[in-house]
C-alpha cells in the first residue's frame, strides 16, 4: 500500500487503523508514509476507511492555522479526508503478502491457493479427519504481529521429520520447494504476511509429539503461534482427543464444533 503524498494531509487517522503499525508520519515531508518492509498488503486501510474527497490544500491550510492555536480537528476516526490511500500493482514475490493477508482477495488471481482450506468446517462432508486422526492448524502472525516465511520455515522443517502429512491443498504447502523437509521457496522467505496457516494430519498417538515440537520451536520465533487441533467424533459425539490433551496438560475451553448436518450430494440423491 502506498499513500499519495500529493493528497495526504497528515491527519493521522490511518495510523491506528493499520494492524501492523506500519504507517507513520514522515517528519521530513510531513505526510503519512507506509513502511513497505513491514506492510503486509492486507488492504485494511484502503478497504476499511471511509473516504472524503476534500481539497488537500484547503485541509492543510485549516490544519496549519488550528495547529498554531494548539487546536485539532476532532474527526470521525475511520475517515481519510482526501482519498489518499493508493494500492500499488503487486508483483512476485510481494504479491504473496496480499494473498496471505487480505481475506477478501481472490486467491486464484495471485497464483497461490487459499488462506486455509475448509479445515474441520466441512468435515461432515469431506471426511478429511477421521476417527483416530488429528488435524492440526498451526497459525502464525495473528493477532496483530505478522510473520515472515523464514520463521514459518523453522517450524515446518522441525515438523517434517515427524510421522505427519502436510495438507496438500494449503497455501503454505504450495510454497514449499521440498515438502519432505519442510523447506520453503527461497525467494519468499523475507516476505511478511498477516497470517499463514500450516495444516497437517497425524494419528492421535502422535499428537503429544507434534505439540512438543511446536512448543519448542515457537519461543525462538519473532511472532505468535496459535494451534488448533481437530478430530472426528464417534457415534455418541465423544472423542479420544479431548482426554488426551487434558492428560498432556493442555487447557482448553473454546473451539469450533461441526454439528454434522452436511451431506454429500451423492448421498442426498441416493
Amino acid at each position: 500500500m502506498q499513500i499519495d503524498h500529493g493528497k495526504c494531509v497528515a491527519c493521522s487517522n490511518c495510523i491506528p487503523v493499520c494492524p501492523m503499525g506500519a504507517i507513520y508520519i514522515d517528519p521530513a515531508v510531513n505526510r503519512a508514509t507506509v513502511n513497505l518492509d513491514e506492510c503486509v498488503e492486507c488492504f485494511t486501510c484502503y478497504r476499511g476507511m471511509s473516504k472524503e474527497h476534500l481539497n488537500p490544500s484547503l485541509v492543510r491550510t485549516i490544519r496549519g492555522v488550528l495547529k498554531y492555536l494548539r487546536i485539532r480537528f476532532d474527526p470521525e476516526p475511520d475517515v481519510c479526508p482526501t482519498d489518499a490511500l493508493t494500492p500499488q500493482e503487486l508483483s512476485w514475490p510481494r504479491i504473496v503478502r496480499r494473498a496471505f493477508s487480505d481475506p477478501l482477495v481472490p486467491h486464484e488471481s495471485t497464483g497461490i491457493h487459499g488462506r486455509g482450506t475448509e479445515e474441520v468446517k466441512t468435515n461432515d462432508v469431506t471426511g478429511r479427519v477421521n476417527e483416530g486422526e488429528a488435524g492440526f492448524t498451526i497459525e502464525f502472525g495473528r493477532p496483530g504481529v505478522g510473520v515472515r516465511f523464514r520463521d514459518i520455515q523453522k517450524m515446518t522443517m522441525a515438523l517434517a521429520p515427524l510421522p505427519i502429512a502436510f495438507e496438500k491443498k494449503n497455501p503454505v504447502f504450495s510454497l514449499m520447494s521440498d515438502p519432505a523437509t519442510g523447506t520453503i521457496r527461497e525467494d519468499i522467505l523475507n516476505e511478511k504476511v498477516l497470517s499463514a496457516i500450516v495444516e497437517l494430519k497425524t494419528t492421535l498417538e502422535h499428537v503429544p509429539q507434534v505439540l512438543q515440537v511446536v512448543e519448542e520451536v515457537a519461543p525462538d520465533l519473532e511472532t505468535i503461534v496459535s494451534i488448533g487441533v481437530a478430530t472426528r467424533c464417534d457415534g455418541q459425539g465423544n472423542n479420544a482427543l479431548e482426554p488426551m490433551l487434558k492428560r498432556e496438560g493442555h487447557e482448553f475451553y473454546r473451539g469450533k464444533t461441526n454439528l454434522g448436518l452436511g451431506r454429500r450430494p451423492a448421498a442426498a440423491s441416493a
Binding site: A10, S12, I15, I23, Y24, I25, D26, P27, N30
Partner: peptide
C-alpha cells in the same frame, strides 16, 4: 509512541 508515529511530537 502514537503521538510520535503521528508526527505530533518529536
Amino acid at each position: 509512541l502514537e503521538w510520535v508515529r503521528e508526527g505530533r511530537r518529536t
